[in-house]
């Protein structure tokens, strides 16, 4: 298993307000190379789940295992490095750094991970940008790119360290269907090539057919979804 969640809960406590549990997952795991769609309405806990899996948000209880590594038992700096090396996180609003070029944005996780020799980082980042169709935009800043191009940079950045797990939070939300399909093709193809596990959070029902598995998050709990084959039959 590439990812295992054990008794995961997360509760937000705000002064003067009642504590609110937004995530409550018992035991859940995901195998290597699987492509999973996480569905759920806004506020269902998708982003919180992603942040916990990415090692950015310590759960109130429970543990996240990345391979055999218990993420939250690691010292923070080691967890940060593990995130850089093993997890590619593609944010909903891409979160490119505005002062850096497309190339520099892609190089950044390579620098933080430190796995690739320094002399190869720029070349590898260039290759990735060429792969996502931005070979002519290496030195453009995010403000000089379209929304779709920015998302492509974010995808290239997410793939930079050839992570074993890629998290993509609503990657196509800001795109039209055609551009959304192009991005999903890019992401899924890249993950298949490296056998990386892909978890995508999306509202978009049209994406369902693209994934091996899907789960539904409702009020922080995973609810079963019918297998893909059965859903196709219902549709008929």
């Amino acid at each position: 298993m590439i990812l295992r969640l054990e008794n995961l809960t997360h509760t937000y406590k705000t002064a003067g307000l009642e504590a609110r549990t937004v995530l409550d997952i018992g035991m859940w795991s995901l195998g290597e190379g699987i492509q999973l769609l996480v569905r759920g309405v806004s506020g269902s806990g998708k982003t919180t789940l992603f942040n916990i899996i990415a090692g950015l948000l310590r759960p109130t209880t429970g543990e996240v295992y990345l391979g055999e590594q218990a993420l939250y038992r690691l010292p923070e700096a080691v967890r940060d490095r593990a995130r850089a090396q093993k997890i590619g996180y593609i944010f909903q609003t891409h979160h490119l750094l505005p002062a850096f070029t497309a190339l520099e944005n892609v190089i950044m996780p390579l620098q933080f991970a430190g796995t690739l020799p320094a002399s190869h980082r720029a070349e590898w980042a260039k290759q990735l940008l060429v792969q996502v169709g931005l070979g002519d935009y290496l030195h453009h800043r995010p403000s000089q790119l379209s929304t779709g191009q920015r998302l492509r940079v974010a995808v290239a950045r997410g793939l930079a360290n050839q992570p074993s797990l890629i998290l993509a939070d609503e990657p196509t939300a800001a795109l039209d269907p055609d551009n959304g399909a192009v991005i999903m093709d890019l992401l899924q193809t890249a993950c298949r090539q490296t056998n990386a596990t892909l978890i995508v959070a999306s509202h978009d029902p049209a994406l369902a057919d693209r994934f091996d598995q899907q789960i539904n998050l409702h009020a922080g709990k995973i609810t079963a979804m019918p297998p893909i084959g059965e859903r196709k039959l219902h549709a008929l």
Binding site: A54, L56, E76, A77, D80, R81, R83, A84, Q85, Y89, F91, H95, L96, L97, P98, A99, M108, P109, F112, A113, R157
Partner: peptide, 16 residues
């Protein structure tokens, strides 16, 4: 703060 948060999100640690 958001730039710093993005860097952290990409694996940059607090000391860096």
């Amino acid at each position: 703060q958001q730039t710093i948060a993005i860097m952290r999100g990409l694996g940059g640690n607090r000391i860096t």
